[in-house]
Design a protein around this nucleic acid. Sequence first.
DNA 1: ACTCGATGCTAGCACCGCTAGACAAAGGAG
DNA 2: CTCCTTTGTCTAGCGGTGCTAGCATCGAGT
Lengths: 191, 191
Amino acid sequence: MSVRERKERERAHRHRLIVSTARELAETHGWDAVTTRRLAEQIEYSQPVLYSHFRGKKEIVGAIALEGFAELTTALRAAAPEGPAGREAVAALARAYIDFAARNPALYDAMFSLDNGLPFADEATPAPLREAFQALVDPLVDHAHPDEPGLFVETFWAALHGLVTLTRAGRLPADRAPDRLTLLVDRFVPR
Amino acid sequence: MSVRERKERERAHRHRLIVSTARELAETHGWDAVTTRRLAEQIEYSQPVLYSHFRGKKEIVGAIALEGFAELTTALRAAAPEGPAGREAVAALARAYIDFAARNPALYDAMFSLDNGLPFADEATPAPLREAFQALVDPLVDHAHPDEPGLFVETFWAALHGLVTLTRAGRLPADRAPDRLTLLVDRFVPR
DNA sequence: ACTCGATGCTAGCACCGCTAGACAAAGGAG
DNA sequence: CTCCTTTGTCTAGCGGTGCTAGCATCGAGT
């Protein structure tokens, strides 16, 4: 049975290779450059091989998005370690979110802008998505109305997401982004 | 010279026909269904005719987006007529924004999600865009820090935009959207 | 050593945005 | 009224996209 194990190992390796290559291609040349042909050429296999690992391009984006949620969770937890979270901790959390989006624009798009086929706000939501949301909830829960912590976090998150997308699309002047973040935190967590 | 005038009139008419047909196609079947082939067939001309009116598909999206900004201005002005704007007026303004996006999803995408080639936050920004932003500024200016009214409006707008996109993409549960809006207004305009 | 199933390939489908070049219709000049 | 030029539209096609049918090859198990 060792042969089958080796094949499965190789297959898993190629699976990861596809995801990481697609992600790198997206991050360096934009999502437009991520075509099945280019991706196949980069991994040195033919196009149909991709379809033996993924149902289609959308599923590749979904796999990358999943990586993104795990990394976002790490970034948020690092910014706001456990314990009571004062205003400064919330500001750090918000900054971590914005920075994550700025540092990984293509990844952020895979998570929130592109069609990645992942189910949201629904019982089938994958664990990494729930964890990322939870990483946002924990430091914020003290500042929310006790009856509706979810509502508070959802709204704060939406505001952060709006800042990210509008700033990156050039809809808002980039130089004042930090000021907008401060203003937002002040409104949600009054001094 | 009457002949030339007639031709120009016909040309302008066809120009509007292209824009309205593309918009209707997008609103009824989604932007994916708006291809140059389908659009050409709908207006009963061949594809190259489109390129005698617009530099490319992006410019058609841009024309539709421009319509959208004009209509958004109208909707916002209707929701918050002139005069001092209390908390209720801000809530009405926010509701008008959200409702506009909900009623015209494809239009909203043309304005903010798709690549429409329009310049933002820059001296070349077309008038309708400035006016739409101004329609947001006027009722809000009393609630902002006097030094930085723009910053306040930008942040509030970003929050609204975030709510719109995340809710419509199914990232946030739709049934609690009104509650999130109330929460947002409460945070930005304390009772 | 041979069979046969797994696996990856070539080739091709239907579609995309966009354009070159042929062609017809229509206006002005003689 | 005829000819010529200009203007406008169409057909056909280019290079690209995501995706797949069907063949060929290779290697594992008997």
